[in-house]
Computed example of a mutant assay.
Amino acid sequence: MSSDNAGATGPASAPVQTEERLREAMAALAGHVHPAPDAYRTARGEWRRRERRRRLVLGALIAVVFALATLAGLWVLNSAPATSPGVFDGERMPAPSAPPGG
């Protein structure tokens, strides 16, 4: 608080008085609030349950996406016509042994 508003009763001191009154009211209200004896343990248990559930849901989602990607890949590989050659059934070219002129 600044000393400029000390003892002032004009409109400029109204926000300061309101702030002080609110601060006192909140302090009085907070003085009467007492947490339950096992509040921390209860809140921690709820947080751990939510965290465990979040991890299980994420793991299940990853498993489903992986399974769908695998099934889609197998379906694409098996949907090739039976008359087409396999992936490695082409003419083999010998690998170059050394660069030319070297």
Rank of each mutant, 00 (worst) to 15 (best):
G7A: 05
P35M: 09
S3W: 05
G73N: 09
V76E: 03
G101C: 01
R53E: 14
L71G: 07
R44T: 07
A14Q: 14
A95F: 08
G10A: 07
V64I: 09
Y40M: 13
R48M: 10
P99D: 06
P81F: 06
R54V: 00
P94A: 15
E24N: 13
A43K: 05
A72C: 04
R41G: 06
P37H: 08
S97Y: 15
P11I: 08
D4W: 08
T83W: 11
R55I: 01
A63L: 15
E20G: 15
L56A: 11
N78I: 04
V57T: 05
M26A: 05
A8V: 04
R44E: 13
G10P: 02
A36L: 15
E91Q: 13
T9Q: 12
L77Q: 05
G7S: 07
L22S: 12
T83L: 02
A98K: 15
E19V: 05
V65P: 12
P99R: 07
R54W: 02
P11H: 03
P96F: 06
P11R: 06
A28C: 01
A98D: 14
R92G: 01
A36M: 12
H34Q: 12
W75A: 15
A67V: 13
G86W: 01
R52D: 14
L56K: 11
A69V: 05
N5A: 14
E46H: 11
P96A: 12
D38W: 00
S3G: 00
P99L: 10
D38M: 03
A72M: 01
T18Q: 14
R53L: 10
P100Q: 08
R53F: 02
A60E: 12
A60K: 11
P85T: 02
A12C: 08
D38G: 00
F88Y: 06
H32D: 11
V16I: 15
S84Q: 05
W75V: 12
P11F: 07
E51W: 13
A80K: 14
F66N: 02
S2G: 08
N78H: 11
D89H: 09
A72H: 00
Y40C: 13
R21Q: 14
R52P: 02
R52H: 12
T9I: 08
P35I: 03
L56M: 08
S79V: 03
L74F: 06
M1C: 01
R54P: 00
P15I: 04
R48E: 15
W75N: 12
I62A: 15
A67N: 06
V16T: 13
L22T: 09
P94V: 14
L71P: 00
A6R: 08
L56Q: 13
A27Y: 03
P81S: 06
H32M: 08
L77N: 03
E19D: 09
N5H: 11
G101V: 01
P81E: 10
G59H: 04
E19I: 05
V76I: 05
V57M: 06
L56E: 15
S79G: 02
A28D: 13
A12M: 11
